[in-house]
Design a protein around this nucleic acid. Structure first.
Length: 563
RNA sequence: UGGGGGAUUGUGUAAUGGUAGCACAACGGAUUCUGGUUCCGUUUGUGAGGGUUCAAGUCCUUCUCCCCCAACCA
């Protein structure tokens, strides 16, 4: 159960709930709900809402959070999405227990409520076409005018609505509207449509219904039916609150939840719109909904993000009504913070450079001791084979090093992590291209384990892998999907896609202890970053995703020098 | 030019008339067999003007800027 031992967070929503508890408004009950529409995959913006709603329930003695699918638009909704949403919510660590609901389960009740409204003279069947309805609605600055059907008799409305329900009318020919006020400055109150005719198969109710209720009618009533106390939603529904309240007030329902709105989550260098996410997937800019560059829950999961780190992120960003964009580095920080403690360290050479240690015996192999995690001794040690030929990172050698370069260069000495000190004696290059092919080094046998007894200091430490023992692997390096902090600026978000957001390295050299590691396992590749075994990984060819790099102060120095 | 919201450092978020705090980021230093981690430190803020008050981010007032709303979507 997440978040229980953490200090209580405070935000304006929790403050409202606390007040309600003090005044015993709901008899101590706190009932929230997460109400996704099953028309797409969940993203980290949904995670914020999930953490809020389920988190609040967990924090209160009589707290409950429902998972309710808002499935009133069969045109766009699919069972596949329901399954993915359930999977994502529980992966994030939340449990709805028995409290799994579907708005479609309330269709009969909703239909009866609509009839109640008609009988009260508060709803009418309108024969205007969609275009006409728009026209009659007026504009932001001009009031609307009454539909010619506003004043139909209760009997006529009843019989018309029954016919709608019976499937006697064509799609678009009739709608049921709430009779409120066509001159309201709030467009949502200008006789909103509450039922439309859609002769579409519904994934749960089949062909039972030729009419489907609209969001504004369905949502408040579903909340009321379920005994929700606090109905938390995003800012764009603020204008809908008067309608939410109107429906429940007119129907004189005992349970009248309080709708509270908060700002949705935005993160730098990514997008959070379902529509745009869909476009990226369909246009092939990414490889499916679980592409590790996407902010979808499934993408983050595949990338290697942990549920804990996402929850921790959601805790830290807070909840408010200000439109805001959170720096993606905060998300990365949350991941590093967790994995620093839990991820085993391992040595992997991403861009191999062969090193031959000339004074090391030809056929000798030694087992070197290595700690699995310096932050957690209980994770133990492992043995790593060392031999005459090894690989080091190409970046760790420079023939003409600048100042402050602590790594290997001709004549300098570095430490091989957990092994020996080596000194670079000569550089072998391709005669034609000038490319460095291999390095010849000498080692100091008295420095086994990476220590010298004479107090000699080396500034650089490199990771390495024994050439004959190495496993070849593919590593996928991800960076931001977009080049700009706000992908929506400029000529549309697809123009800002980062062409280098995925770099595949095919010939990485992995230490042998990683043989057979399973998909989803996370490691720290020493000095490089946190990596996760991808689902594409095969026994003979492991595939790793870089979740996030380590912080790199050398990269900063190097970069500032070049500028 | 209707209605509804919002504005606190680079970013996010606290401070319910009484020392503007925290986190991330950035920068400096110490420690370190990861240029990681850890530790210490530094810089940057109440959108603007006026008013009330001993005291204003907070109250009053005028203004500015930003977001949302005219789907038979949610």
């Amino acid at each position: 159960m997440p978040n229980q031992d953490k200090p209580a967070r405070s935000d304006f929503i929790r403050a409202i709930i606390e007040d309600d508890l003090k005044t015993n408004k709901h008899g101590g009950a706190v009932v929230t709900r997460f109400p996704p529409e099953p028309n797409g995959y969940l993203h980290i913006g949904h995670a914020k809402s999930i953490c809020l709603n389920f988190g609040i329930a967990l924090e209160n003695k009589k707290g409950v959070c429902h998972l309710r699918f808002d499935d009133t638009n069969p045109d766009k909704e699919e069972v596949e999405y329901i399954e993915s949403i359930k999977r994502d919510v529980s992966w994030l660590g939340f449990d709805w227990g028995e409290k799994l609901y579907f708005a479609s389960d309330y269709f009969s009740k909703l239909y009866n409520y609509a009839i109640d409204l008609i009988k009260m003279g508060k709803a009418y069947v309108c024969d205007l076409s969609p275009d006409e309805i728009r026209e009659y609605r007026g504009t932001l600055t001009e009031p609307g005018k009454n539909s010619p059907y506003t004043d139909r008799s209760v009997e006529e409305n009843l019989s018309l609505f029954e016919k709608m329900r019976a499937g006697d009318f064509e799609e678009g020919s009739h709608v049921l509207r709430a009779k409120i006020d066509m001159s309201s400055p709030n467009l949502n109150m200008r006789d909103p449509i509450i039922y439309r005719i859609r002769k579409v198969h519904h994934h749960r109710t089949g062909d039972d219904w030729p009419i489907y209720p609209m969001y504004d009618f369905t949502h408040c009533l579903s909340d009321s039916i379920e005994g929700i106390t606090h109905s938390i939603c995003t800012l764009e529904f603020e204008d809908h609150r008067p309608l939410y309240d109107w429906v429940l007030d007119e129907l004189e329902l005992e349970c009248h939840p309080q709708q509270i709105e908060f700002a949705r989550l935005n993160i730098t260098y990514t997008i959070m719109s379902k529509r745009k996410l869909l476009e990226l997937v369909q246009a092939g800019h990414v490889n499916g909904w679980d592409d590790p560059r996407l902010p979808t829950i499934s993408g983050l999961r595949r990338r290697g993000y942990t549920p804990d780190s996402i929850r921790s992120f959601c805790d830290r960003i807070g909840v408010a009504k200000t439109n805001s964009t959170v720096d993606v580095s905060l998300l990365e920080h949350c991941l590093r913070e967790e994995l620093n403690m839990s991820a085993p360290r391992v040595m992997v050479v991403l861009n191999p450079l062969k090193v031959i240690i000339d004074n090391y015996p030809q056929d000798k192999t030694e087992e070197m001791d290595a700690v699995n995690n310096p932050e957690d001794e209980s994770m133990g040690n492992r043995k790593i084979p060392f031999s005459r030929e090894i690989y080091i990172e190409r970046e760790d050698f420079m023939e003409n090093p600048p100042k402050k370069f602590f790594r290997l260069s001709p004549g300098t000495e570095i430490r091989l992590k957990h092994a020996y000190y080596i000194k670079c004696e000569s550089v072998i290059k391709d005669e034609k291209t000038g490319e460095i092919i291999e390095l010849h080094c000498s080692y100091d046998p008295d420095t086994k384990g990476g220590w010298s007894h004479d107090g000699r200091k080396v500034k650089g430490t490199s990771h390495w892998v024994s050439a004959q023992h190495a496993i070849k692997a593919e590593v996928r390096l991800y960076s931001h999907l977009f080049n700009t902090q706000n992908p929506d600026e400029g000529d549309g978000f697809t123009q800002n896609i980062n062409p280098e957001s995925l770099m595949v390295l095919e010939s990485c050299m992995v230490e042998p202890s990683l043989a057979g590691t399973g998909a989803g396992s996370r490691y720290q590749f020493l000095r490089q970053g946190y990596f996760c075994v991808d689902t594409d990984s095969k026994q003979d060819k492991p595939v790793f995703n870089r979740i996030v790099s380590l912080k790199d102060s050398w990269a900063k120095i190097d970069k500032s020098k070049k500028q």
